[in-house]
Amino acid sequence: MTLRVLPLLAFVVAPAPALAHHVGTYTPQDNELTTNFKQVKFSVQAGKFDVARRLFEAGALRAQMRAKAATLPPGLESGTRAALQAGDAPEVERRLMIFFAALARDLALEAGRQLVDARLAPEARATAGPRFLEAIWRYYNLIDFAVAMRDDKTSVAMRLAFDEAEGYAKAAAPAGAGLSDALRRIAQILTHLIDTSSTFARRNP
């Protein structure tokens, strides 16, 4: 009798382990750039400019600023170092804001390119969209407060454009024109932010 009941019991109970077994959770970690940004930012906030300067000079931020110098406003790296030397916290914040805005803009432009790249499989394009958005937000999120303090309209525009892009990315066909348009808008907003912030710097050295 027991043996006859067994298959029925197995049928009822067997799916449970698949739902119940645990496979651990993943908490995204900072990369070397965001780690170095936080180190510098917190040192500056604490008024430890000598510490911040050492962390900047030996860290990933400066290396990346040098590597990407061609796509960044001129003198961003040397200006950041000079601001740290002078103990000018708002200027350090502004320059780091420009740097991360440029990183996010480059990601938005690259995402836009890949989404319309016919050489990539449709599945690859579909998965690329959300992943680029995640990376864009990881960088933009670091500077959103600084952006909002200087130009709240840009901050709001960026958030709206990002929400729109996320909506398209979650849709059934994420690699469509809607997502490309939203990414283009993100790139435009960030380019505008970089240009106006850099212009402001030139006018008020």
């Binding site: 993943y26 995204p28 970690q29 990369n31 750039l33 990183l103 990601l107 690259e110 890949q114 690859a124 998965t127 690329a128 992943r131 680029f132 995640e134 990376a135 990881r138 960088y139």
Partner: peptide
């Protein structure tokens, strides 16, 4: 793995 060839994006995917 959906790697896109951009370090800022791929590092997170590989890390996870």
């Amino acid at each position: 793995h959906g790697l896109v060839g951009v370090r800022d994006v791929d590092e997170r995917i590989l890390d996870e």
